[in-house]
């Protein structure tokens, strides 16, 4: 960062806030582009899996489709339903997007590329993802609509239940890493055997639990009972149009990418190379994230929607006992000399 010094001297004390804003923009900008192209990737992949070809009309290979969709949503009229709570109705989409973006502050992209390197990073992420549910609840309640209300109740119960399983899965990770710092968690997976040093090996059941809980947390298929197109129309965002609707989707996809990043940081070794003779770099990180996101799309193309009571049973009666057992197993395992990670 030597070349930045003249600008730094020019701006004086205003440098720090400006530089921070620039760094935030450098994260949010690519993230938004990633979200836009994730929607395209989703439509393409699901199309392929259903023997279709997906969008291919707007631009070469359909590459301009996300822009066209965004433009369409921007131009649309924003309708505020009568009898709704106007203020809450308007801030609800913002409250979905805000925590989804705020959580990115502590994500390390590579060994030195991180906005804030805080010690309680993992806790911060957990807190931010748990805030996202408020947007959904407020949206459902403020819409003054039965479908929206049912959707928001479903979503709230679902997110709160799966957060526990997710938290326990993360407890095993931080037991293994002995740190709450996301950078240190990745560094803890560094070793001479490449892939074999990642936490996915000793914590494989937790990896599965975390991945499935992540799908549930982001209200994605097959756990999309909060949207449930065939039962409750579109769930909590049924009354939203135009940009409000777009913000919900930005939030949902940003959360998906966030979960993918967290999965690769905590179980797949982040920016570490899978084989010892190749250098570690951000490319590995992005490849792992792309793989996890592909899994998300693959799930959506494969599985039918869970029934609501089955969903709750899975969360409370299967995942929480499994994670609790594995916390004890890992704790005991770490006391033996056979813990190699």
């Amino acid at each position: 960062m030597e070349w930045l010094l003249p600008i730094q001297n020019l701006l004086g004390s205003a440098w720090l806030p400006i530089w921070t804003v620039v760094k935030i923009m450098l994260i949010v900008g690519p993230l938004m582009i990633g979200v836009a192209y994730l929607t395209l990737a989703e439509r393409k992949v699901i199309g392929w899996m259903q023997s279709r070809i997906g969008p291919n009309r707007v631009g070469y290979f359909g590459l301009l489709q996300p822009l066209a969709d965004g433009l369409k949503l921007l131009m649309k009229e924003i309708i505020i339903p009568s009898g709704s709570n106007k203020l809450l109705f308007v801030i609800a989409p913002i409250m979905v997007l805000m925590p989804a973006l705020a959580a990115w502050a502590v994500i390390p992209f590579s060994a030195e590329l991180v906005l804030t390197n805080v010690n309680a990073g993992l806790l911060y992420i957990l807190a931010m993802t748990s805030l996202g549910v408020y947007g959904v609840i407020i949206a459902g309640w403020a819409s003054n609509s039965k479908y929206a209300f049912l959707g928001c109740l479903r979503s709230a119960a679902q997110i709160v239940s799966y957060e526990i399983a997710m938290g326990f899965a993360l407890v095993t990770v931080l037991m293994a890493a002995q740190s709450l710092n996301l950078g240190d968690i990745v560094r803890g997976q560094h070793g001479q055997y490449g892939m074999l040093n990642w936490y996915i090996i000793p914590l494989f059941p937790m990896f599965i639990v975390y991945l499935i809980s992540g799908v549930a947390e982001t209200n994605r298929a097959p756990f999309d009972v909060a949207e449930g197109e065939s039962e409750i129309v579109a769930g909590f965002h049924v009354e939203y149009s135009g940009m409000g609707f777009a913000l919900f989707f930005l939030g949902e996809y940003a959360n998906m990418i966030l979960i993918a990043f967290l999965t690769s940081i905590m179980f797949l070794g982040g920016w570490l190379s899978p084989v010892p003779f190749l250098p570690d770099s951000i490319v590995w990180m992005l490849a792992k994230v792309a793989f996890v996101l592909f899994l998300f799309l693959w799930f959506r193309a494969t599985f039918p929607r869970y029934r609501y009571d089955q969903l709750m049973r899975l969360g409370w009666k299967v995942f929480i006992p499994v994670t609790l057992v594995w916390v004890v197993v890992v704790g005991a395992w770490m006391q033996t000399p056979y813990w190699l990670w």
Binding site: L123, Y124, L126, V160
Partner: peptide, 18 residues
């Protein structure tokens, strides 16, 4: 601070609102 957000805001108040 984070535990307050996580436990009270993220879980207790959600059920309360419910």
């Amino acid at each position: 601070a984070i535990a307050l957000i996580l436990v009270y805001v993220g879980a207790v108040m959600v059920l309360f609102l419910f």
